[in-house]
């Protein structure tokens, strides 16, 4: 059991499954899944997938073009703080703030996955990810990072020791490189003026396709959660714990 906080920085927790399919993607699958989970996730939405494509043109110029892809369907709960996303060979279960607890979220993941497997009959997992996204706001124009984070950029002494934006990502291998923890600390867009916002993003992923079987996912999730929890505590200092109001 990890530490508890009265004011936890978690803004989103999500579990993402990418599947190795046993057949071509059937566009009826999202509707069939919705029928099974609409009691808890009755509000339907759609997310357009698009990307900005840079195309080389004559004279060394490039043209920017927006390319639209297949939409991803989203099913929200009544409070719109929890949702299920379904796309071709993709299932994600997200929980936004306030995050309940792992003891509540894990059974939800397993239940939705169980329903998906029933309707889509995938061959296995291509990728699994459990991700905890934390947003930490600081009032004012500057902070001393080392006061709050043990995980932070290290820059040579002859460079300015003050910086405006950064993104620090390290991927740590686990389980003989079957899994990886992708750990990111980065500046993000703040919601209010005179606020510094940082994201501490902990993403534990299974990267070797089909190395975890469908019936092994509960154990994998438990291990992933434990690693994320330990990594989070290792990244922050007691001053952060004070900010998050640790409950003892």
């Amino acid at each position: 059991m990890g530490r508890k906080y009265k004011n936890p920085p978690i803004v989103e927790v999500l579990c993402e499954f990418q599947f190795v399919s046993s057949q071509p993607w059937d566009f009826a699958i999202p509707g069939m899944l919705y029928e099974r989970i609409k009691g808890d996730f009755p509000i339907r939405g759609q997310q357009m997938a698009f990307d900005i494509v840079l195309e080389p043109k004559e004279g060394g110029k490039t043209e920017q073009r927006i390319e639209f892809g297949s939409p991803r369907l989203r099913f929200f709960n009544k409070d719109k703080n929890s949702l299920v996303q379904v796309g071709p060979d993709l299932l994600t279960i997200n929980h936004l703030k306030p995050y309940p607890t792992w003891e509540v979220f894990k059974p939800l993941i397993l239940r939705i996955l169980h329903e998906y497997v029933k309707v889509a009959n995938p061959k296995g997992f291509k990728r699994i990810g459990l991700r905890y996204i934390n947003k930490i706001d600081f009032e004012g124009s500057e902070i001393e990072l080392s006061d709050y984070f043990n995980y932070r950029p290290l820059t040579p002494n002859n460079l300015p020791q003050e910086y405006k934006s950064f993104q620090l990502t390290v991927e740590f291998p686990y389980e003989n490189e079957r899994d990886a923890l992708r750990l990111t600390l980065a500046t993000i867009i703040p919601e209010k003026p005179n606020i510094l916002s940082l994201a501490l993003d902990l993403d534990y992923i299974m990267i070797k396709p089909e190395s975890v079987k469908l019936d092994e996912v509960s154990t994998w999730l438990e291990n992933a959660h434990m690693i994320i929890e330990n990594a989070f505590e290792s990244c922050i200092t007691d001053k952060s714990r004070k900010l998050f109001e640790e409950v003892k």
């Binding site: 993709l90 124009s141 990072l145 950029p153 990502t169 500046t187 993000i188 867009i189």
Partner: peptide, 26 residues
């Protein structure tokens, strides 16, 4: 070590060292 507020880019899709996809869905 300090950083100040003035700006601020966001973490885009980090380029993964591991994993097979080039452009993962967010």
């Amino acid at each position: 070590m300090q950083f100040s507020s003035q700006y601020i880019q966001i973490p885009t899709n980090y380029y993964p060292l591991y994993g097979s996809f080039v452009n993962p869905p967010e």
